[in-house]
Amino acid sequence: LDLGPVEYPAGEHRLQHPYCLWFSKRQTLVRNPQVQATEGYGQSLRLVGQVATVEQWWGLYIHVVRLHDLPQHTDLHLFKKGIRPMWEDPANSKGGKWVIRLRKGQVGRAWENLCMAMLGEQFVTGNEICGVVVSIRYQEDQLSIWNRTASDQATTARIRDSLKRLLNLPATATMEYKTHNDSLK
């Protein structure tokens, strides 16, 4: 679960934080739903790569399967290196997420903008951002942005306003904030 130290080749544009890209697919063969909800999730997570410069990001991104070619119930997670994209991670345990629901076909551009907004430090919230997720589902797709402190309403409001400004979301998109505690229930 570790790809080793990050590299900063000369001449490349360093990011503020290194990030890891993860892939997960919902397991369909697990019979016990509780196992699927907890252990199954961790086991289905795969670390795809890590990036520490803008050039490394594009080198990885252009090789990732296009979102509209991904099967249903798959997720891509781009998280700061050292934070696993799970509620149980200490960075996430008191956190929450803004969830944006989009009609099929609308998520690709918004996901790209969301990744770039995070990598480029466009969310002015100190070190609150943990990572972003795109979830491919049956009728609609979802984007999520996870932050550390769900109870910090000033921060969550600032993230919401930044999302609206940066993602150029279609009018049909809906947004709601969920604490990870709510999601666990």
Partner: peptide, 21 residues
């Protein structure tokens, strides 16, 4: 140190740089 901030247009420019291919 100084926080490293990049705007979308700058990042998109680098997308097509030879080093990322």
């Amino acid at each position: 140190g100084t926080k490293i901030v990049y705007e979308r247009a700058f990042l998109m420019n680098l997308r097509n740089s030879p080093i990322s291919k």
